[in-house]
Every structure is written in C-alpha cells, then in structure tokens.
Write a protein that binds this DNA or RNA. Structure first.
Lengths: 119, 119
DNA sequence: CAGAATCCAACCGGATACTG
DNA sequence: CAGTATCCGGTTGGATTCTG
C-alpha cells in the first residue's frame, strides 16, 4: 500500500497533512487498549497461567471478557494457547516474544500513569 | 485511599492478588486511549495549533470529537487552551510538559505498533 | 472561527445461565 | 475445568445542524 502523502496543487508537502505516526498509535491502542488486555499480559509475563487462574487473578473481569481478550491477543500473536490433554483438560496461556515487547510499551504507559497519579 | 491489598485469612499475601500494576495501565488507557487522543497530542508536539486547523489535520474526526478529547486532555493537564482576543477569536492549544511525557509513553506504543505492522 | 446541541448507531463490557 | 450462549445497558464515536 502506497503511503498516502498529501500535497497541494504546487507539489508542496502539506503542513496540515494527517501524518501517519499518530495512526500507529491508534492501531496500537486498538490491539492493546481493551479493558483487561494490560492485566492479562502482565499476569502472563513470568509464567504460563491457566484460564481459571487468570480469571481469579483479574478480579472484576468476567470469564467472557477474559475469553474475548485472550482470543484477541492470540489472534495478534501476543500470547499462545496450549491445551494439555489431562483430565479434565487444562489450558495454558503463555506470552510470546511479540507480547513481551508489547508489555514493554505498556510499561512506559504505566510509568506515566503512576506519575500522573502521584503528582 | 488505602491500597487494596488482598490477604487470606492467615494474613499471607495472596499469590493471585490482582496486582496494582496493570491497574496503572488501565488508568493510563482511560486518559490516553480515546480514539483521537494520540493524534491530537502528536500534532501539538511542536507548536500551538488552532481548533479548526486541528480539525483539518486530523482527518476523519468530527469537530465534536476534537472538542471532547480536547476538553478531556485539558482536564488532565496534558494541554493548555488559550483564547486570543482577536476578532474573530482564535484559540490556541498547546501541549504541556505533562502532555509531553505522555507523548513519550505513546511513542513506545507507536514503535511497537510499527513493528507489529511491518513484521 | 470555535464551538454547542441533538440525535443516532455501533461497539464494549458485564450478568447470568448453560455445556462437554 | 474451560469455556459458550444470550441478553442487556452504558459508553463511544459520528453526522448534522445551529450559534455568538
């Protein structure tokens, strides 16, 4: 897809061009902005966690929401879902490298929010 | 407000405690997660911008949305609103230091989203 | 120019109940 | 245990029109 560059009739770069950088922010927000996304990623950062454990850790979120966010994150390659054929089945969710870098980005946000709250 | 620390009946720190760190992420998201927030902040980063210019820069957003986000950002101290008593009046929006640090955090998100898109 | 007012659609998040 | 199904209310985002 070609970059959409706005130029006026004289070929000058338009100073009011809707630059693409904020768009990347929006895209990131769409992926990471869900209400429980940060929590889920955070809780997975060190070790695999099972579905119901996650649901307990993240107090306030219904199973439906957990499921929804989990599917979403999986679709974007931020986490992996592994089914262990025990009985009853248990399902592990683990964070991927891609997910870990996302968490780094979120960490910047977290620090900012902390200062915001403090000061 | 006291920190809500969950402990079990024996006073042990609960391993499943809904830790507060992701909550900070959520708070940050509430402030910065609005659809046009990133764009607005971004366009203000270098110089003051007037309302209608902003509305033009951010293609796709209605004036209502701009206004709404602007008020929101102002309430959180991320931007300043300055009315110049010209005729007709013109209004400048400028980013504050606090807003600038927020933009830094958003930049991490942006980089992540860029890689996400590329790879 | 810089909004406010109104109305509306879509989506998000949540409660509850059910399933293999 | 690990979800799915259904329903529902609130919020978000947007189009349009009007105003000092």
């Amino acid at each position: 897809m070609r970059a959409r560059v706005t130029e006026d009739s004289k070929g000058r770069r338009n100073a009011l061009e809707p630059c693409e950088k904020p768009c990347a922010i929006e895209r990131g927000m769409r992926i990471l902005g869900g209400k429980w996304t940060g929590s889920i990623l955070w809780h997975l950062k060190d070790e695999p966690v099972r579905f119901n454990d996650l649901a307990r850790m993240i107090n306030g979120a219904s199973k439906k929401m957990i499921t929804e966010r989990l599917r979403h994150l999986e679709a974007h390659g931020l986490i992996n879902r592994t089914v262990l054929s025990t009985s009853p089945v248990s399902v592990h969710y683990t964070i991927t490298d891609h997910g870990r870098t996302a968490l780094n980005a979120l960490d910047a946000l977290r620090h900012w929010a902390d200062e915001e709250a403090g000061g």
